[in-house]
């Protein structure tokens, strides 16, 4: 397999833009290149040009491509201390001034974190008072998120995370096992709205009290991170919270001064200026 060059990546993003109206130009080069490499190997394509041709001609292939290019590796209660902080500090703070509130889960992938937040809220006794909107660029993965079926193999790690989160019961109380799959209790997400939304070209569609977007913006370059942060800012009430991944940072973004750091370990920010 030949080395993929920057010019190749440009060819790919151009064809995606002109044929499918998705914009990958400001994705982080190193990971985008690796995802492209992966697709080429997965579909046994002979070259970048073969990929470009296929992208141009085949609408169904593009849908599969989209699913493969986005990273869908996730866990329930990843970074348990983050979820504890959310339960013990952030959400009680929101509840001081609001009886009900809303959460935007941006880039929810296969839904493990949607179930995590639903379980957390249920254990706080407030699940029915919270409106959750979970979005992703890829409608195939959204379908999987809605289904809430996970391989039992992954439940061991999820269960470990849940124990460290110090939940009220056992994670096994929230699913049943069937044919090697964990089937999550449907009532956890019955009020969750799953919808397709592309952070790159999407507009603000509502205002929220808490935005969760962990380990999504790492796949973007700084230009796009700036742009997405502006989208979040416009989608948040004043004094709303934003949570990003443990090794992400907002401090070099243009509008960082409109936020304060609430917790630097867990990367939780609060919007303080409109």
């Amino acid at each position: 397999m030949q080395e993929i060059e920057i010019a190749d990546l440009r060819k790919i993003t151009e064809i995606i833009q002109s044929s499918h109206d998705y914009d990958f130009t400001n994705y982080a080069m190193s990971s985008f290149k690796r995802r492209i490499q992966r697709v080429i190997e997965l579909y046994k394509l002979s070259s970048v040009d073969a990929l470009v041709k296929r992208l141009e001609a085949d609408q169904n292939f593009f849908k599969e491509f989209l699913s493969e290019i986005t990273v869908n590796v996730t866990e329930m209660f990843r970074d348990p201390t983050f979820w504890r902080e959310l339960r013990d500090d952030i959400i009680p703070n929101i509840l001081l001034n609001n009886d009900t509130f809303s959460i935007w889960h941006a880039g929810c992938s296969s839904g493990e974190e949607v179930f995590s937040i639903a379980i957390l809220l249920k254990e706080m006794g407030i699940l029915d008072r919270v409106k959750i909107v979970a979005t992703d660029i890829d409608h195939v993965i959204l379908y999987r998120a809605r289904q809430g079926m996970y391989s039992m193999k992954n439940m061991e790690l999820n269960g470990k995370n849940y124990i460290q989160f110090q939940g009220k019961s056992s994670l096994t109380d929230y699913y049943r096992e069937e044919g090697g799959k964990a089937i999550m209790n449907k009532d956890l997400v019955e009020n969750v709205e799953f919808r397709e939304h592309n952070l790159v070209i999407g507009d603000p569609f509502s205002k929220f009290d808490l935005v969760l977007c962990r380990n999504v913006m790492i796949y973007f370059n700084q230009t796009l991170q700036n742009q997405v942060l502006k989208l979040f800012h416009a989608s948040m009430h004043k004094y709303a919270y934003l949570a990003i991944g443990a090794k992400e940072s907002l401090i070099w973004c243009e509008i960082a001064n409109k936020f304060i750091v609430v917790n630097n370990e867990e990367k939780i920010y609060k919007k303080i200026k409109d």
Partner: peptide, 14 residues
């Protein structure tokens, strides 16, 4: 990962 422009990029890939 090391990114063009002399920065780091994180990834949670497989």
């Amino acid at each position: 990962a090391v990114e063009l422009g002399n920065t780091f990029t994180m990834s949670t890939e497989e």
